[in-house]
C-alpha cells in the first residue's frame, strides 16, 4: 500500500492500480509481457512451420500464430508509446 502511494506521484495521472504506477514500472511490465508473448509466438511459429513441412492441416496453428503476433504488436506499440512520452 505504501509502495503504491509512494509511486503514485512519480507516474502519469490515471485511475486504478495500473494508472498509479510509475512509467518505469509500466514499461517494465510491458517488456515482461513482450518476452512472454514473444516466447509463445516463437513456439506457435515453430509449430506452424512443422505442420506445413509435414503436410498436416495448419489452420489452427496459423490462427494461434496470428493471435500471438497481434498481441505482441499491440504490446510493442504500447511499450514504445510509454517510452516516447
Amino acid at each position: 500500500m505504501a509502495a503504491r502511494s509512494s509511486s503514485a506521484g512519480a507516474g502519469k495521472s490515471g485511475s486504478g492500480w495500473w494508472g498509479r504506477q510509475s512509467n518505469e514500472r509500466k514499461s517494465e511490465h510491458l517488456e515482461t509481457l513482450m518476452g512472454l508473448l514473444g516466447f509463445f509466438t516463437v513456439v506457435a511459429f515453430v509449430a506452424t512451420v512443422w505442420a506445413e513441412l509435414t503436410g498436416k492441416p495448419a489452420l489452427a496453428e496459423v490462427g494461434v500464430l496470428v493471435a500471438f503476433l497481434a498481441a505482441l504488436y499491440v504490446t510493442y506499440r504500447s511499450w514504445r508509446d510509454y517510452n516516447d512520452s
Binding site: E28, H29, E31, T32, L33, M34, G35, L36, L37, G38, F39, F40
Partner: peptide, 10 residues
C-alpha cells in the same frame, strides 16, 4: 532485461 524475464516466465 525484462524481456528475458518474460521469456523465462513463458
Amino acid at each position: 532485461k525484462y524481456v528475458v524475464l518474460g521469456i523465462i516466465l513463458g
